[in-house]
Design a protein around this nucleic acid. Structure first.
Length: 746
RNA sequence: GGGCCCGUAGUCGAGGGGUUAAGACGCCGCUCUUACACAGCGGAGAUCCCAGGUUCGAAUCCUGGCGGGCCCACCA
């Protein structure tokens, strides 16, 4: 039953023509373009459902919504897939073509999943980051920023896997605990501790803690590196752990991430100690592998008496998640975007945006305040947007590409305007966050249609996960602000993550992954959507709850059955039906519920909205009101008021419920009213007296029910006499007698 | 170590300075009552993490613990 209804309405929604009236306000939703993995996970369902709730709510409120969908296609995981499928021997162009082909397949799978969720996405307005038209806009945006002085090239360490001979991202790191040896090595009159003696030749300083009495007098002096007889300064830094080893550390470029921090902080020189093959360079041991060099240098130090002590030591190192080999930090030329110098301004800009929940902005501010250096925007990959510049190898001059989209393998020749040398087209590609950090400009057509842009920018809202505030939100605010001088959107809404029912992260290795496709075998789409609404506060993680989705499904069945009852009682009525007190009570409550749900929707409190709706409908409307109408139809007394009220509640409730459960709500509404839902409730009804009296009365009804149950009577069994615990008017007394089959009230 | 979030019945969770602290799941009874047994009705079950403080009054606000989560950093 559910499946037929779902398919019917999805096809109706999809085939609806989308036309936009640019003379009216157009609310633009900047939705996350998912990475094209081929499958949506529960986090996607949560986020996209939130987006759809907003889109449907605003549409019913009479707004025009512009709700496109994008796809974040480029990236390392796709490259790995293609590499494992076709090997490493494809040309750049062939390789990229395979990636594109594969991504298109994944997109079509994911699009089907989204359609199945009933999302009212405008499928005529999609963007895909891997397409040439998208590349062109990204490249334009980067050149725009270069013209503003925000793009530059500089030497910078990158994470490098010597085994795979590739730069890798932080996200590809894994930790591994290994047995290592902590060596204490004498440098003149100071003894340093290190696990990486092979990097001795790349030592640029020795650091101690500023409060460490042992070394107080050494700070500012020079010490001599054993074997190399080169002098380096002793410096003070708070990050040095006094209690670790000897409390003195050699800073090498680069043994680990901390070295990098120190090198930057103290402006130390850089000595490249290891090459891209994982072999030593600039040393007495050049050409040796790291492990070989380590044992040789230790032997040499030992024989010359420089090693003071050796202790075995468990150490955590970074390894590449694919090949499990240790990762090194290597120095290389990279491209940067100037983020740091705009820090204060970026904080000001972010404060102009309404953040929901409000604490979300702290993730942003905190990250900006802790930035160590600018945003590295270059990657040594193939499946990415090429960096649209030429580089002069001779004088380091940079010039932007003239023809876009720019691809280095097809690039025209260019002569350096400074020194006349032939320039090299850059072969690195851009960080994928560069692609996705201009989505507001893409969907508002900044580079193609300024009129459309002016009408749709800033966008109404961005919805995204809280865990990528420091990347996606920050980079978007930064880039869009630099290019347009404005905030990208008026609001940003943050959702949390979906954990496994056991409260842990969902992961394949833990075997606790719940997939939307599996759930949809057992639960209707509208139940899954309700789950999303029920699943808790914004920007907080919450375990997936089978209780919630079970309840959601039961609620749909309840709604369906109540609708059947209502439909069976429909009959033509006059314009002025006589309303009994119970009618006025439920209409008053309906009016209150509309107010509360409206408020909840305005503040994106979806949980409050859906639970208010569910509790009102089930616990008040079905459990009490519906029962009060039955005797009236049987005895044909005041049926018009009952029909009017049943229809009214069903009408307004269905409108609100359709935001969360559109398929069933539209079907029910259609069955009763013969048309589609097209507005948010306007209904208002006030009768405090009826409300107070009937709520009191409902308690009396419960008492009678309790009495019957505890006396093992059926609820419809006749009761000769019932002693009222309070006074009620004649109309309510009649209600009680008839609803619970009581002969006499005293 | 830094930032943020959170600690409410067996479980999940609303709420949030003032009558009996929602609701769901689970549990225990009773009922196939013509919308619904994927139901109805009823019941049991909470020192609202701990300790101070503010207050006439705190589960709710403040401070400090303890515990959990997320993100970030991390011992050379």
């Amino acid at each position: 039953m559910f499946e037929d209804i779902e398919k019917k309405w999805q096809s109706i929604w999809e085939n609806k023509p989308r036309e936009y009236d640019l003379n009216r306000e157009l609310l633009v939703i900047d939705t996350p373009p998912p990475f094209t993995s081929g499958t949506l996970h529960m986090g996607h369902i949560l986020s996209y459902s939130y987006i759809d709730f907003i889109a449907r709510y605003k549409t019913l409120r009479g707004y025009q919504i512009f709700y496109p969908q994008g796809w974040d296609a480029q990236g390392f995981p796709t490259e790995m897939k293609i590499e494992s499928k076709y090997g490493k021997n494809l040309s750049r162009e062939e390789f990229r073509a395979k990636c594109v082909e594969w991504s298109h397949e994944m997109i079509s799978k994911m699009r089907d999943q989204m359609r199945r969720m009933g999302y009212m996405i405008d499928w005529n307005n999609q963007y895909i980051t891997m397409l040439p038209e998208y590349h062109e806009k990204v490249q334009k945006s980067v050149i725009d920023m270069w013209k503003l002085g925000d793009i530059y090239r500089d030497n910078h360490p990158v994470l490098w896997c010597p085994h795979c001979k590739s730069a890798i991202a932080k996200a590809e790191l894994e930790d591994k605990e290994i047995d290592s040896i902590l060596y204490d090595i004498r440098f003149d009159n100071i003894v340093i501790s290190t696990t990486r003696p092979e990097l001795l030749h790349a030592c640029v300083a020795v650091a101690v803690h500023p409060d460490d009495q042992r070394y107080k007098d050494m700070i500012g002096k020079n010490v001599r590196i054993p074997l190399y007889n080169r002098e380096v300064p002793v410096i003070a830094d708070h990050d040095v752990i006094k209690d670790f080893g000897t409390g003195a550390v050699m800073i090498c470029t680069y043994g680990d991430y901390q070295d990098l921090v120190w090198q930057k902080r103290h402006n130390l020189p850089v000595i490249e100690g290891i090459d891209k093959e994982g072999k030593l360079k600039n040393s007495k041991y050049d050409g040796m592998s790291i492990d070989e060099a380590r044992s040789r240098i230790v032997a040499d130090l030992r024989s010359q008496g420089y090693i003071v002590s050796e202790k075995s030591y468990r150490k955590i190192i970074r390894i590449h998640d694919r090949c499990k080999n240790p990762v090194e930090l290597l120095y290389s030329y990279e491209w940067f975007a100037s983020l740091k110098k705009h820090k204060d301004k970026l904080i000001d800009i972010a404060k102009q945006i309404r953040w929901t929940p409000s604490f979300g902005i702290y993730h942003y501010i905190d990250w900006l305040n802790n930035l160590d250096w600018d945003w590295i925007i270059s990657r040594d990959r193939v499946f990415g947007t090429p960096i649209p510049f030429y580089v002069c190898e001779k004088c380091n001059h940079i010039e932007p590409a003239d023809k876009l989209p720019f691809y280095p393998e097809k690039a025209d020749e260019k002569i350096c305007g400074k020194c006349g040398t032939t320039m090299r087209p850059e072969t690195k590609v851009l960080d994928v966050w560069i692609d996705s950090s201009i989505t507001p400009l893409i969907i508002s057509r900044y580079y193609e249609d300024r009129e459309f842009f002016n009408r749709t920018f800033p966008n109404y809202i961005r919805i995204q996960g809280v865990e990528i505030v420091r990347t996606w939100a920050l980079y978007t605010i930064y880039r869009v602000w630099r290019i347009t001088g404005s905030v990208p959107w008026k609001e940003i809404l943050l959702n949390g993550n979906v954990l496994a029912p056991d409260g842990r992260k969902m992961s394949k290795s833990l075997g606790n992954v719940i997939s939307p496709d599996e759930l949809l075998k057992e639960y209707p789409v509208d139940a899954l959507r309700q789950w999303a609404a029920m699943s808790g506060a914004l920007a907080k993680d919450r375990p997936f709850s089978y209780e919630d989705i079970k309840y959601a499904k039961a609620f749909l069945i309840k709604y369906w059955n109540a609708s059947k009852y209502i439909i069976s009682k429909l009959q033509p009525i006059s314009n002025t039906p006589k309303l009994r007190k119970v009618d006025r009570w439920i209409l008053h409550r309906l009016s209150e519920v509309i107010d509360r749900v409206t408020d909840a929707m305005e503040s994106y409190e979806f949980r409050d909205a859906i639970t208010t709706l569910q509790q009102f409908y089930w616990n008040e409307f079905c459990d009490f009101y519906l029962e009060y109408t039955k005797w009236r139809f049987q005895k044909n007394i005041d049926t018009e008021g009952a029909v009017y009220t049943l229809k009214k509640v069903q009408e307004e409730f269905s409108k609100m419920f359709s935001v969360f459960a559109p398929h069933l709500a539209y079907e029910v509404y259609w069955m009763i009213f013969g048309r589609e839902i097209d507005s948010w409730p306007q209904f208002s009804f006030n009768d405090e007296i009826a409300k107070n009296d009937v709520e009191r009365f409902n308690l009396e009804v419960s008492k009678v029910r309790t009495y019957k149950i505890s006396n093992r009577m059926s609820l419809k069994a006749e009761l000769d006499r019932w002693e009222l615990s309070e006074q009620f008017d004649d109309e309510l007394k009649e209600e009680l007698k008839n609803t619970l089959n009581i002969k006499e009230l005293v």
